[in-house]
Design a protein around this nucleic acid. Sequence first.
DNA 1: GATGCAACGGTACTCAGTACCAGCAGGCTG
DNA 2: CAGCCTGCTGGTACTGAGTACCGTTGCATC
Lengths: 239, 239
Amino acid sequence: MSKPPARIRLADAAFALFDERGYEQTTIDDIAERAGVGRTTFFRHFRSKEAVIFPDHDRLLELIRDRLATSSHRTALVAVSDAVRLVLMHYIEEGDLARRRYALTSRVSALRDREIASVARYQRLFREFIAEWMGDPTEAASLRAEIMAASVVAAHNHVLRRWLRGESADPVAEVDEAMSEVLSLFSAPAGEDSGRGGTTVVAFRTGQDLDTLLPALRRLVEGGTEASAGTAGQRHGAS
Amino acid sequence: MSKPPARIRLADAAFALFDERGYEQTTIDDIAERAGVGRTTFFRHFRSKEAVIFPDHDRLLELIRDRLATSSHRTALVAVSDAVRLVLMHYIEEGDLARRRYALTSRVSALRDREIASVARYQRLFREFIAEWMGDPTEAASLRAEIMAASVVAAHNHVLRRWLRGESADPVAEVDEAMSEVLSLFSAPAGEDSGRGGTTVVAFRTGQDLDTLLPALRRLVEGGTEASAGTAGQRHGAS
DNA sequence: GATGCAACGGTACTCAGTACCAGCAGGCTG
DNA sequence: CAGCCTGCTGGTACTGAGTACCGTTGCATC
């Protein structure tokens, strides 16, 4: 029975001790001692005490970056909502470990903050990707990119946390659903793939009744391209 | 010329030293020494080194909580997008101090993480408020609350950061615009305040042409309440 | 056997944060 | 005036995270 490598022993010892006495009550010396290694060895394998719990967020971030770089989706939002699945998959593969980590981060605010900071890095990556993809440097587009990224991340986190709490049997299906919810939020009122025979109706409110604005509606539908939306109502955002 | 209180002197000294040598290169002893007080006094006024830079996030959070508790808006989203203005106002009142802090948080990742954690607390508050307000414990509603909170916060941060970077002359007007952008995202396809004489058109795509679905449209508009949306198209989310 | 290399353990240090104790000014009461 | 309480202060000593450096051991290679 050869001992498992030090890195594994350290992680195991850390989780065990965190469970037994709590995070703050456990020192690096405690962990190293239980793992049967020196204190120095701990820091050789993990940059910090927190890093034992979040080992490969950096790697995951790189994975996502690659996925985005090589993705060929029709819209930036689809590409992003595809890439974010990598995170979910990663957690699911970790299985029980991810849940133990969740139990810890729920109790220890320092760890929760650290987790949040990691998530913010994904979100930033997404925001930059979307903004670049849109190639529209206006303020409105930039705002929209920000909201899109935030929505995707929020939806993902929602599903992830449900799964971590054991409230979801099929997180993959749920994340699909959540992403389509997000996509529908931002689906452009007109344009995109219009002119393929269907009808796209723009959502708006107006003081006029239906018959009054019907001509404008008809003009919009038959016009095909987005062009003259001014007559029918004020447009919000959207490409 | 009597000296300003220790708390002020400490904050001034801290900012000055952070600018001169950087955040990590400045020790608490340095700050205390320049402020002309003992090390102990520093920790009496600020819980930690980071807290010198983010003095009153807790107070602000309470302010927002109160605002939400006493607000009487028509929808949760309006209440939240109103409450988030408190944050913007607070920063604007701080003026140049807020900008110096921003310059610091941009460079020092530890501070950036801390800032992000604070923002996450607002977002959580908003999420809980919206979820409670909706009173709908279903999964879909919970997801929607999460996305709403994230969108409001993202929109706010976008405007705030623009102002902090000196790119915005009128952040108050911009935040109004940004919030109305968010509101329009989530404006319910039907219902809410219909039947008051205006017209609310539902956004959807369909394979049929406009004339075919016009009767259904008309029925929706005249029906007043939300009821039979099924005939016209598939509905997404919403109350 | 000599060489290079990778992982390890130990010591000593800096610095953030905590705990505890002691001084000192001002206001209040007897 | 004396005594006392209170708020603010400074000092000292401690714990624990994280860093730097050095010496050792084990192992493979030439």
